[in-house]
Every structure is written in structure tokens, then in C-alpha cells.
Simulated scan of single mutants.
Amino acid sequence: MNSGESQQPKNLTSVERFLDRTANRWLASRGDRGLRSGLLEFLVFGLKQAWACLFGALMLIAIIAARLWWPDDATLARNDALVIVAVGIQVLMLVTRLETGRELWVIMLFHITGTIMELFKTGVGSWLYDPDGVLRIAGVPLFTGFMYAAVGSYMVRVYRLMDLRFDRYPRLWLTAILALAAYANFFTHHFVWDARWLIVLAVVVTYWPTWMHFRVYRRTFKMPILVAFGLVATFIWFAENIATWAGAWAYPDQVDGWEPVSIMKLVSWFLLMLISVVLVTVVYPPRGIARQN
């Protein structure tokens, strides 16, 4: 059995290499068998997931803080303050080498695709933002693109941190077609038949054989990639509930008072996961599992 340090995932940033070595040494000092070892490894898994979510977590904290403590009569509008904070977080992630320059441009793709969708969706009344602030395009504050970028940041970072590999991954051209169909449907369903359930079915059929393998320490675990889609979509849905409660935006049924986001939004986030995964494969092509000789 190789040591945890020798199994360190590739492509980590300098900060992540230090954190990974520290976690591996901590686990190695406690053995690799028994319930206690399993619980400790699960804890490290949770910490790595939280670390991958850093961008999104900081954005959510900023949104909540703006709701609780930002004065309504402040010279700098709340939405503009969130834009400045979002830019600051992105710069911090790069300066501290928590994200690589190679990843930045794919995160910007998340930003651009998200902002385009925001402009359309607010235009047709799917949701709305407070009208304050000047750092906006039409009715969309510029911080909104960073919320999509936060999803991209998580995706590219978890790929590295968990040393993700895949068994029976679909053809990339097929996943790209599905992602384009899902993205287009976010727009076209306002005018023609809503094909989201057909696309969901196509995604399930396409990804059904695919298993995702991830390493926490010495052991490699696996799960169906569709389960991973569903788990991350659920997590985003919970974060969306917090963000709408904090007034970052509002759906039409929340204008007269906050209420939980419809559970049906999980379908939208599931399809967003498809789009996100396809964008990430531009930077990190899916790797197959290592076969033992």
C-alpha cells in the first residue's frame, strides 16, 4: 500500500498540495482500519468538499451579510457592494493560487453563459432583482454572473481535489449535444414546447452506465455519476433558498413574502449540472480509472 502522500492527486495548486499532505499525514497517524478510521476519512471528505465550495460559500456569506447589515440608505448600493466583493473573491482565489490560470477561462465561460441566461430570464419575468446600483447590465446586477462562476469554481476544484476518474464515460460529442439542448431549452420553453423532461430522460439514458471514482485518502470510492448530479443539484437548491431569503433575487411567488423555492427547480439545477460538467471537460477531459496489472 502506498502512502497517502505518494498518492497525492495531480494538478493541485501549491496551497492544495500543502493541505492534502497535511490531511494525509493526519489520517496516516491514525491507521487505515476500523470504524474510527472510516469516520475520520469521511470527515476529510467533507472538508475537501467544503474547500472546493470556497468561492460559493464566500459569495453566500456576502449575500447574507449584505441582507443583515448593509444600510438601505448607504451611498454604495447593496448590489454594487456584492459586485465588488465578488471580484475581490475571484482575485483572491487567483493570487493565493486556489485556482489556476488554466481554470479561470472556463470559470469565465460559466460567468458568460450564466449572465446571458440571466438577461433573458429577467426580461421574461422568471425572477427579478432590486433595481438599486449602477454595476448592472439592463436589470441584472453583475454579481449574478459570479454565482454561476462559483458553480464552475467548485466543479474544477473538486475534480482536482478528489482525483476524479470515470468508468464508461459517454462520448464527449454526445454530452456536448445534450448540454446545448439543455441550455437552449432554458430559453425556448417560453415560446415552444418545454422539452426539459425529454432532455432529462436523454441524460439519464446517456449517463446511466457511468460511475465516478474519487479518492479521499488511501481508498477509492465510487458512485453513479447521476447520483452526483442529483446531490450537487440539491445542494445548489438549498443555497438558492438561502440566497432568495437574503434578498439576492426573488421569484414571482416570493415578491409578497419569502417562501421556499419550488422543489421543481431541482430539475433545472440537474440540467445545469450537465452543462457544468461538459464545460469542465473542456479543461479536464474525463480520465478513466487506473487498471491494476
Score class of each variant (00 low, 15 high):
202 A>S: 10
214 F>E: 00
154 Y>K: 00
159 Y>Q: 14
189 H>K: 15
182 A>S: 08
202 A>T: 06
207 Y>C: 02
173 W>Q: 14
191 F>M: 01
185 N>G: 07
206 T>P: 06
139 G>F: 10
130 D>T: 14
206 T>Q: 06
146 F>N: 03
144 T>I: 15
182 A>Q: 03
164 L>Y: 03
178 L>S: 07
139 G>Y: 14
187 F>G: 03
169 Y>N: 00
133 G>V: 03
172 L>A: 15
132 D>K: 10
185 N>H: 07
165 R>A: 11
144 T>G: 12
158 V>Q: 09
209 P>H: 00
140 V>S: 00
199 I>L: 06
203 V>M: 06
149 A>P: 01
145 G>L: 04
140 V>H: 01
170 P>W: 03
209 P>N: 00
206 T>L: 08
198 L>G: 12
210 T>C: 12
165 R>P: 03
179 A>D: 03
139 G>E: 15
131 P>G: 15
160 R>M: 08
147 M>C: 12
135 L>A: 10
177 I>V: 13
150 A>F: 04
182 A>M: 05
165 R>W: 05
150 A>T: 03
132 D>F: 08
129 Y>R: 01
180 L>D: 10
156 V>H: 01
137 I>V: 13
187 F>P: 00
216 V>S: 00
207 Y>N: 01
195 A>T: 11
180 L>I: 14
127 W>G: 05
197 W>P: 01
138 A>F: 13
159 Y>A: 10
213 H>V: 02
172 L>Q: 15
175 T>Y: 04
175 T>K: 07
167 D>T: 10
211 W>A: 15
162 M>V: 05
175 T>C: 11
191 F>A: 01
143 F>K: 05
135 L>I: 08
184 A>H: 05
188 T>I: 10
139 G>R: 11
209 P>I: 00
195 A>I: 09
165 R>H: 07
211 W>F: 13
150 A>G: 11
174 L>D: 13
192 V>R: 04
172 L>V: 12
173 W>H: 14
128 L>F: 12
165 R>M: 06
148 Y>R: 06
200 V>S: 12
142 L>I: 09
141 P>M: 04
133 G>Q: 04
151 V>D: 03
197 W>F: 15
168 R>L: 08
210 T>H: 02
156 V>K: 00
150 A>P: 03
170 P>C: 02
151 V>S: 10
172 L>T: 10
157 R>P: 01
208 W>T: 07
206 T>H: 08
155 M>S: 07
179 A>E: 05
182 A>W: 07
173 W>L: 13
166 F>R: 01
139 G>Q: 14
160 R>E: 13
130 D>S: 14
164 L>S: 01
194 D>I: 02
184 A>E: 09
147 M>W: 11
142 L>G: 05
160 R>S: 09
215 R>M: 03
140 V>C: 04
162 M>W: 11
172 L>C: 09
208 W>Q: 10
128 L>K: 15
137 I>C: 09
130 D>E: 12
200 V>G: 09
206 T>D: 05
184 A>G: 10
135 L>V: 07
137 I>H: 04
168 R>C: 11
137 I>N: 04
181 A>C: 11
175 T>N: 09
187 F>R: 01
177 I>N: 12
195 A>M: 15
156 V>D: 01
194 D>T: 02
184 A>N: 08
209 P>M: 00
212 M>N: 06
190 H>W: 14
180 L>S: 12
205 V>D: 06
195 A>H: 12
203 V>N: 02
